[in-house]
């Protein structure tokens, strides 16, 4: 990165002259000034973030290119959803910067942030459909909020989006009447309703049967290429994601451990990445959430209290 090297060389200069350190605001300022918005849609530098005691991100460096389908992969609980929320400005980093389209997200005013978000679509892991609105009204919601389009036109647009996810026939159902997979597809239709320049998909493939999975995978790719979007996919489904992603970043232990094309990652030198990509049960990745005692010890140890949680 150019901005890094600029800062670094400035530091070197200062070191030789006066042996003082560039303070954080200054570094920040330079990083802001020199961040090149060129072909990078999202630029994440030195990101630190923790949830309570748990340090989720410990210096994440990540650039997402315009026009590509970028996948962020990693084991459950590494903070992929959290990363998307940081990009969307719903959470504030503890340290480090996130630039989207050249704008420093955490530094934006509410108005600026909302303006930026109009160009972002986000598919929530939970779907987040409005339970008091029908499928049709859910997809129409962003259109009605942000445009003054006449109702017939909104209708056409909504049906177009619903057709794309194969749920035109379900338009009058309420979210409670949908299956998990259908709800996800409605949420996807809603995320792309405003034709954003950037779409973030949090687990788009979970709960889809093989047929709709195939359709969705193609849909994401086609949307990306036809509309000139940039897409960020967070997913565990290695095979599907690898099929459409231009580039995959693997998140582990609070950092990006490896980035590259799907092909490169399959052949990765890192045993860890290979295990993840191939889904091998044996390898350096612990399947278990860290526990204080070993399993045997845990079984043998006396419970501290005989009373249960209830």
């Amino acid at each position: 990165m150019t901005d890094r090297s600029v800062i670094d060389s400035a530091q070197v200069l200062l070191d030789t002259r006066c042996r003082c350190k560039l303070n954080a605001p200054w570094t920040q300022f330079m990083a802001d000034t020199f961040a090149d918005a060129g072909d990078h849609l999202v630029d994440i530098r030195d990101l630190h973030f923790s949830r309570g005691e748990r340090l989720l991100f410990d210096g994440v460096e990540l650039s997402i290119r315009r026009g590509e389908v970028t996948a962020i992969m990693g084991p459950s609980g590494t903070g992929k959803t959290t990363l998307l929320k940081l990009i969307g400005g719903q959470l504030q980093p503890d340290r480090g910067t996130i630039h989207v389209e050249g704008q420093h997200v955490a530094g934006l005013s509410t108005r600026g942030l909302y303006k930026l978000r109009r160009r972002m679509g986000m598919l929530f892991q939970s779907g987040a459909l409005f339970t008091d609105l029908s499928v049709f009204d859910n997809v129409a919601f962003p259109l009605r909020e942000h445009t003054d389009l006449p109702e017939p036109l909104i209708r056409d647009l909504v049906l177009l989006k619903l057709q794309a996810v194969g749920l035109r026939g379900a338009r009058d159902l309420m979210p409670a009447q949908l299956s998990g997979g259908m709800a996800r597809r409605v949420a996807l239709a809603r995320a792309i309703a405003l034709d954003p320049t950037m779409v973030m998909y949090d687990e788009p493939f979970t709960g889809q049967d093989p047929i709709s999975m195939g359709v969705l995978v193609d849909l994401i790719r086609r949307l990306n290429d036809a509309l000139g979007l940039s897409s960020i996919i967070v997913s565990h489904d290695v095979a599907e994601t690898a099929r459409i992603a231009d580039r995959i970043h693997v998140l582990h232990g609070g950092r990006i451990v490896e980035s590259g094309t799907p092909g490169a990652l399959y052949e990765s030198q890192s045993e860890w990445v290979r295990q993840f990509m191939h889904g091998l049960p044996d390898g350096p990745v612990p399947f278990h959430y860290p526990a204080a005692l070993g399993f045997d010890e845990d079984l043998m140890s006396q419970p501290r209290s005989s009373r249960g949680a209830w």
Partner: peptide, 22 residues
């Protein structure tokens, strides 16, 4: 509360609609 716990409010925010107003 339910809108919050099912991420409907977050979803609204990400659609650039302020739940405070809406």
């Amino acid at each position: 509360g339910l809108m919050k716990s099912t991420e409907q409010l977050s979803g609204m925010e990400m659609m650039a609609v302020d739940p405070m107003n809406r």
